[in-house]
Nucleic acid binder design. Structure first.
Lengths: 223, 223
DNA sequence: CGGGGCATGACAGCTTGATGACAGCTTGGC
DNA sequence: GCCAAGCTGTCATCAAGCTGTCATGCCCCG
């Protein structure tokens, strides 16, 4: 799950990025609308965090512009404390949620999880499938009832595959979901590596990751 | 456990803060409703102590406002001696408890402990788990029957971890629970330090604190 | 049988956490 | 008030575990 944070205050942007990173999201930071547009052109995001007050324009205009071009990426808007009309206006413009600054990082995390899982058609963070039990909120994984430790990247990959269960995910798509621009120079072999590591941990769970040569990977029930 | 004290008389606020600090709570003081709102936006509290008579408005209105926005943080209200209707009104507005000024600090402490443990779904201050026996009221700790001395911070950390047993607690969350704003500049290494100290004291108790790299710590039974 | 894509073990760099020693400060006893 | 004891948090150093690279060997497909 890749997130674009459009926010010009470095402290805020970085705190959010760190917190969301821990929660399994890959984040890119865009301090201006121009940067944001550039990012969106290059890759697509599972969601966007948008500050309304930016150096090169209003986030509201930007949001309206995106919606007019048919972009349906979930957007969470950050508003200043007292601008009620901004908040309401943003929702009218097509924002999916808002948060008043200053906000609690845990809340941002929870709301983004809600937005992205809504996109995936789920109502809660927990997914149980055959012998597998994954909770994106607690970042915990159980296989046949036993807790299995997995690293941040492994969990992020699993999350992506689970959200697209039954679909073949191209390697570059998985790559985009795991790494932001700052890790852009990582070799493509990495995905194969993490698939291998995940497979070991999922062994015997009744769920497996199939390889489709030249196409990508697909997670589904055994058989 | 972090507590917000909304009280404009410095003497009272500071006495309460000191007393509660000794009892293992991390306190922030807000002398006005505006300050209180700012604090609440930034972090969240295990409970709130609310004076009703404040320079920029009535605590009752504030309480009503919080409840209307869905905030369920336990609130203990401080009332003047003779305003019975305030007291009753506050309870109606959603206060969880009240104390008449002037009050005994020990009583404040005991009532806050009651409120926070109710939140954690417990009926008493004492938690026994495997070879561990912790009493938040007496601030006493026993491991396999033997009394173990532990400092305020160690106990506060243990309390937090116990209240969230089985959940991974991010380091910054533990940090928030242990330190108020006034200690905001304490190095993050501190949490690791206290985890190490606690681990030593819990050795052999059947309960242990697991490290989850990049995510946080989790307290649970061994195994 | 040859080639490209994939799997996987080993490894090194680096980030993150663990821990001992220490100095300042607080606290409590006298 | 003074002193001693112990609590606190910083620093430096060391250990562990995560990450991604590489190299090698495999497998599928032509």
């Amino acid at each position: 799950m890749r997130i674009l944070i459009v926010e010009d205050t470095p402290d805020v942007a970085e705190a959010a990025s760190a917190s969301l990173g821990r929660a399994g999201f890959a984040c890119d930071i865009a301090p201006t609308l121009a940067d944001a547009r550039a990012c969106i052109d290059i890759t697509d995001y599972a969601a966007m965090v948008l500050d309304l007050n930016l150096p090169d324009g209003s986030g509201r205009d930007f949001l309206r512009e995106r919606r007019r071009t048919g972009d349906l990426t979930p957007v969470l808007v950050l508003t200043a404390q007292f601008s009620v009309e901004d908040r309401v206006g943003a929702l009218d413009e097509g924002a999916d949620d808002y948060l008043v600054k200053p906000f609690d990082l845990r809340e941002l995390e929870a709301r983004l999880r809600a937005l992205t899982r809504r996109e995936a058609g789920r109502a809660e963070n927990r997914i149980a499938l055959a012998g597998l039990d994954f909770d994106a909120g607690a970042q915990s994984l159980r296989v046949n009832g036993a807790a299995v430790t997995a690293t941040r990247r492994e969990l992020a990959l699993l999350n992506l595959l689970l959200a697209n269960r039954g679909r073949i995910m191209p390697k570059d798509r998985l790559f985009d979901g795991l790494f932001g621009f700052e890790n852009a120079d990582v070799g493509t072999n990495t995905i194969e590596l993490y698939v291998a590591r995940l497979r070991k941990k999922l062994a015997g769970s009744g769920v497996s990751i199939e390889t489709h040569r030249g196409l990508g990977y697909r997670l589904d029930l055994d058989g």
